[in-house]
């Protein structure tokens, strides 16, 4: 319990230094990670009360060290540690979660692990039009130092499905993140209708 409080305090400091708002205007909640995650990793969700929770940040603690979305190389450092350490090995989906948490994504997007998470009309439209059946995150080792992560997110209210492409130089260096495909499912369905 004391550790959680210490970690929340560290996050509060980080927020007050970087977010431009008073740290006490944030609610900071520990997130319950599924058991499949490495034990050494903890996640926190901070949401700004005076903006009705629409502004939020996520933080990760790994072996007691804070990895923040405000840090220029927080994501790189965390992934380097995870790739270098068997104990902290992440699956493709978990790596995608970490990328999303520390790269400050836009409000309303959700990682998609399976096409089953989309509604039936969306699924059938995707398959019929684009032949897309598999939306699971993929982590590929390109060569000794480079990994490529591909995953999809869905914007709940806009109905936009996006594919993200992340190049991770595990031996150090900057991560390159891009959104290379966007499908407007709401528009697709409307046109079909």
């Amino acid at each position: 319990m004391q550790q959680i409080e210490r970690e929340i305090e560290a996050i509060r400091d980080e927020l007050s230094r970087n977010s431009g708002a008073k740290a006490d205007s944030y609610d900071i909640l520990p997130l319950e990670l599924p058991e499949t995650w490495p034990q050494a990793i903890k996640a926190y969700h901070a949401l700004r009360r005076d903006r009705h929770g629409r502004i939020f940040f996520q933080f990760i603690f790994c072996d007691g060290l804070l990895y923040s979305p405000f840090s220029v190389d927080g994501l790189e450092r965390l992934l380097s540690v995870c790739f270098a350490n068997e104990r902290l090995r992440l699956t493709a989906a978990q790596t995608a979660e970490v990328v999303l948490m520390l790269s400050r994504p836009e409000y309303g997007i959700n990682l998609i692990e399976s096409v089953e998470e989309l509604s039936q009309p969306n699924r059938s439209a995707l398959e019929r039009v684009y032949g897309l059946k598999d939306l699971s995150p993929q982590l590929v080792k390109l060569d000794e130092n480079d990994y490529k992560l591909t995953f999809w997110t869905f914007h709940l209210r806009r109905g936009t499905l996006k594919r993200w492409l992340v190049y991770i130089p595990a031996g150090g260096g900057r991560i390159r993140i891009s959104e290379d495909v966007a499908i407007e499912l709401s528009q697709l369905q409307q046109e079909e209708a």
Partner: peptide, 17 residues
């Protein structure tokens, strides 16, 4: 499902909590 998603990266992660 997305509002109460169990994914930690979810925009709505606090709702799961």
């Amino acid at each position: 499902d997305m509002l109460v998603s169990s994914r930690p990266s979810s925009t709505y992660a606090q709702l799961r909590h």
